[in-house]
Every structure is written in C-alpha cells, then in structure tokens.
Design a protein around this nucleic acid. Structure first.
Lengths: 183, 183
DNA sequence: ATCAGTTATGCAACTAGTTGCAAAAACTCG
DNA sequence: CGAGTTTTTGCAACTAGTTGCATAACTGAT
C-alpha cells in the first residue's frame, strides 16, 4: 500500500511524466521504494481516477505522447494522513538468511562464493550512498526537508553497513574448519 | 521464489503437517521468512505435485484430516541447488523510510509517535532474539548446523540493532527545534 | 519521404502474498 | 450419544509486483 504514496511524494517534490518518475525511481526514492515503469504507469492511472493527481493540460492525450502529472490538494491530504498512520513493520522476508539456514541441512557448498558476491554488491551500494552524502549534505543542513532526507540516507548507509558486517562474519564462519574431530 | 525452499528446509529439519509448519513459521524459520497457513497449504500441494515431497501414507486423505509430509530425494536436491544459486539482493522497499521522506514534503506531524512505537516493537524483538541466543547457543556450538543457525540468528539481532539505532537517531532529530531563524 | 533508433505510454498475462471464509474431522463434556 | 468447540485442511477472491511485449510519437540521417 505504499507505491501510491511514494509516487505522491515524488510528484510533490517535482511534477513529472511517467518516464521521468521511472528514472527517479532508479535512484533517490527508488533506493528505499523500488518500482518498475509498468507499476508506475498503472498507479498514475489509478491516482488520476481517484482525483489525487491530474495530468497537466498540454495536448489532448495520445499514446506515446508525454504527459506530466501534478498532485492535487486531495492527494497532498491523503499523503499527510498516511505519514502518521500506525502501520506495523512488515515481517522480515530475506532469501539470503533463509539460504544460510538451508545450508545447515543440505550443506553449504558454493554458498561462500555467493555471500562474497553479495558482500561486494553491498560495498558498492554503501560507497554510492556515501558519495551522495558527501555531495548533497553539508555539515549543517538548511531546511527541515534536507534534514529528513539526510536521515533517510543515513538509514540506507546504516543498513548497508549492517549487511557488510554480517556478511563478513558469515564468510569467515563458512571458511572455518570443522570442529570436534581433530586433537 | 523462496517459499518452497523455506518449506523444504523446515520439512528436512522435521517432517510435519501443514498446521505444524504454520506454527513453526510463527517463530524460528518465520523470523526471516514469514508465511500464512494458506500460502503453506497451497505450496505443499504444489511441492507434492512436483514430486519434491510426499504425504506420509497414513489414512486415505480427507479434508480436515491431518497429513504429514516428508521431503523426497528430488526435494533435497532442489534445495541443495538453490542454496548456492546466484540471486541478487532484492531492492529495499521500506514504508517507514518512505514515510520519513514524505514527511519532508508534507510535514512530520504525528510521525514521531509512530517512530517511537516502532522503536519499542524492535526492542521487544531484539529481546526475544537475545533470549533465544542465550537459551539455544552456548559458547561453542557443536555441529555445523548449529553454527549456521546461530549465524542466522545473529543476522536477526544485528538487523534489530540497526533499526533501534536508526529509530533513536530519527526520534531525536524529529524533536530538534527548527534552525536558522533565531539568533 | 522514409527508415532506424529513441522516447514515452501502455496492455496482458503471470507470480507471489493477503484476507475472509467454509467445511470436514477430531476432541470433549454433560 | 450428540451438541458444541477445536483442529486441520482448504477454496475463492483480492492486492501487489514482475515480465514480456505492443504501439505511438519524436528525431535525425539518407
């Protein structure tokens, strides 16, 4: 139930066409709420139908012709309400942790390599976030909006740091020798 | 694509009926791959059809009558293969981070309370994990399986620790006064 | 002009997960 | 026994996300 809100947020930050939104979902907002262009177009249609956004009146709409959307007051209101709505954290569902557990019953052959691959992916992601932090967030951020965006980025950074730490631990453990049989 | 593998893992650890599996998915395996009973029954059906598991021959199957499943060699093979298959980490999709970002554009009223609520949920979860760690994992684990299970639990612990840290940071920032207007 | 490539929108079909409910079997207690 | 509760399995309909492809408009080269 968050995609519409992600789109409303993105459109409030800057009115855009579907494709522009898609590109922005490949970075920035997309770092913590990813979506494909099909999802975005479908949702734009729904939001327009519900009267939360509207297409800027340019030409009569035709397929293949660019359409820019902006948020209507009702859309802003809906987003405002959602921000403080109680909603429990969703249960964790992580394939990698599951695979390590499965390795406990069927053996860990080949898993270490996969963990190392993930480790390096997370390192790149962390580096990317840190570059953004350095570029966009100077020592004392000016606006409340900047402070909150920085906070979200910190979340990304700390999450990647968690993965890097855990994966390092895991790779180490997997290469440990078996215990208990030798003197 | 991980639910079938979660079920195979659980069944290898101990052959079970659908309901027993459901209960085990409320803890243990479910801590990092949650599933409802309907998902589980449906998937058990599919796995049986594909010849990866079978119902222990007890009585003729009838609705409402308990059915125990065990993993067949083909099922074990499928799981073994999956464990080391390359599969990229899925993109992050977290509603809470999104809400903080949205708060940047529509204002953060009420958000701090929700963050505090999440903070306390994560603290409970962490306490639960730590109790399990103390209970189930003594200083030097005996088997490889134990070591891997402990590793997974460590993942849960560190993930909760990340959330607690970040949420603490966030709650602090949200209660900071506005800057830049007073001398 | 027209053809190729890029930009932009969108449909259709699929997989995964959620919600609400039904219904058979087994248990239980007067 | 049998009426009511619990256990256990399951269907149906829905929401969310993914994959593959179609199609229109624009852009620039020949």
């Amino acid at each position: 139930m968050s995609l519409p809100h992600a789109i409303l947020t993105a459109l409030l930050e800057k009115p855009s066409s579907g494709l522009e939104l898609t590109r922005r979902f490949d970075k920035s907002i997309g770092y913590f709420w990813s979506a494909t262009h099909q999802q975005i177009y479908r949702e734009l249609g729904r939001l327009e139908e519900k009267g939360l956004i509207r297409a800027l009146p340019a030409a009569q709409p035709a397929r293949g012709q660019k359409k820019e959307y902006e948020v209507l007051p009702a859309g802003r209101a809906a987003l405002t309400e959602w921000v403080s709505l109680p909603e429990d954290p969703r249960p964790v569902r992580d394939p990698l942790l599951l695979r390590v557990r499965a390795a406990g019953v069927v053996g860990a052959s080949g898993l270490a390599a996969e963990l190392r691959r993930h480790l390096s992916l997370h390192r790149s992601q962390l580096a990317e976030y840190e570059a953004i932090e350095k570029r966009d967030f100077p020592a004392t951020p000016a606006t409340e909006e900047d402070r909150l965006r920085h906070l979200v980025l910190r979340g990304g950074i700390e999450l990647e740091t968690f993965w890097i730490g855990w994966l390092g631990e895991a790779v180490g453990r997997l290469s440990e020798p078996e215990r208990g049989s030798a003197p």
